[in-house]
Amino acid sequence: MPGQIEDRLTALGITLPEATAPVANYVPSVRTGNLAVISGQIPLSDGKPAFTGLLGRDLSLEEGQAAARLCGVNLIAQLKAVCNGDLERVTRIVRLGVFVAATPDFTDHPKVANGISDLMVEVFGDAGRHARAAVGCASLPLGVPVEVDAMVEVAD
């Protein structure tokens, strides 16, 4: 029976993809006690980058926010796998690390990161409010503009 989180996802029109497998020598998540650490998620759709390029040159702020939101959808898919299919076990999004590939003069990294931050609150309510870092970088894997990792508290 779907829970509150699944109902919110449905209301938002979000269908979670299957959690993607790692593409290098790492695991998609690590669980220690009640803390789940989710490896970096990029804006993949159907296994391919949905966005490529740099903020400030190739992509608008709104496109960057959409890319961050898609990273969030993929992150929630990883969380669902960590929680054995039960997203009701997520008790708190503790921290998000948001990496934004941008030109040197681009300074709206926090606004790009709002794409995922807003999604976490929409989906998890107050438990989705989190600490966050939004950091600019020169490039990211596959030429994507955003990558996001997370620390999440999960109930047993």
Rank of each mutant, 00 (worst) to 15 (best):
S39I: 04
P43D: 01
N25H: 08
D118P: 13
D105N: 08
F124W: 09
L75G: 11
P49F: 01
P17V: 03
G53P: 10
L9W: 09
V82E: 03
F106V: 07
F106I: 03
V23A: 09
S117N: 10
G85H: 05
R132M: 12
R8W: 05
L16V: 05
D46C: 09
S39K: 07
A66H: 09
R92S: 11
D58I: 00
M1Y: 13
G72E: 03
D105E: 10
S60L: 06
G33S: 08
D105I: 05
D58P: 07
R69H: 11
I93F: 11
A24W: 06
P22H: 01
G125R: 06
G47A: 07
D7L: 06
L55E: 14
T10C: 00
P145I: 02
D46K: 15
R31K: 15
V94E: 14
K111A: 12
V146K: 01
S29D: 10
P110M: 01
L70W: 04
A11Y: 07
Q41W: 00
E122S: 13
G128Y: 10
F106C: 01
C71K: 01
L59A: 10
R95K: 06
A150C: 10
Q78D: 12
N25D: 15
Q65K: 13
V154T: 06
R8I: 08
D86S: 08
L70M: 09
A131T: 12
P110E: 12
A24K: 01
D86M: 10
I42D: 12
F106P: 14
D156Y: 03
R69E: 15
A67T: 05
V154F: 02
S60D: 13
P104E: 00
V27R: 06
